[in-house]
Design a protein around this nucleic acid. Sequence first.
DNA 1: GGTCTATATTGACAAGCATCTATATAGTGG
DNA 2: CCACTATATAGATGCTTGTCAATATAGACC
Lengths: 116, 116
Amino acid sequence: MPTMVSPSDPDIRLLQALADPVRLAIVRQLGGQPEVCACDFTSCCDVSQPTVSHHLKVLREAGVVEAERRGTWVFYRLRPEAASRLQRIASVIAAGATATVPLDPARSLPVLQPQA
Amino acid sequence: MPTMVSPSDPDIRLLQALADPVRLAIVRQLGGQPEVCACDFTSCCDVSQPTVSHHLKVLREAGVVEAERRGTWVFYRLRPEAASRLQRIASVIAAGATATVPLDPARSLPVLQPQA
DNA sequence: GGTCTATATTGACAAGCATCTATATAGTGG
DNA sequence: CCACTATATAGATGCTTGTCAATATAGACC
């Protein structure tokens, strides 16, 4: 029986980092390019520079992206671990959904009752 | 070049539904069982019944779970599409992260400059 | 050093969301 | 019908988070 999930749970951190329209747009742009300069996020994000910077910070701290400074420019790229971490969460869902598939058509089986 | 992501984007809906400690705890519990009665979510979620119900509604509307009423009881289970949807997002991240791997060790290659 | 561009940080504010109490709704049984 | 249990909904409230303007910091160049 799973216990309470803490707000600082790594999965929560990851999901919350991705669960914002601006940040998802950033991630999608990074998904199609090896890396992107911070200055080039203007077209995906119709928000101010400080807001972009703030979002990039959230993504960094959640382990979704990493940054590399080259002179005055800062380049961002996605971290492979973020993909595998999200994959693992998807697997949990798949496992539960898979377990229900046999029960779905077999409606004649005994119906589960709430635990006593 | 990706455009802005809308708050109603299906991926955002999915991620936001998962990005809450209580809801992730619910999903994790469902991940280990074929289905769970609404009345049995008490141990994973140290919140009131109406709050559990509210969270279950969010998950339903985001397409993460589906509900089935049997008499006075309501049973919930995970939807397979939620797993594949999350998988697809993970793939976007993996694609971007993979594209950066060759560049990582090849630091002697010409350095990307911000787009003009 | 000063000046400039790029980017991160700070602080205020508004909007959105999680939570609860109270209550409505759904379903069962007599 | 009534009484009961299970669960969803409504509304109020407090907290969190996204946003911006202002500013600090980082780096390059003279």
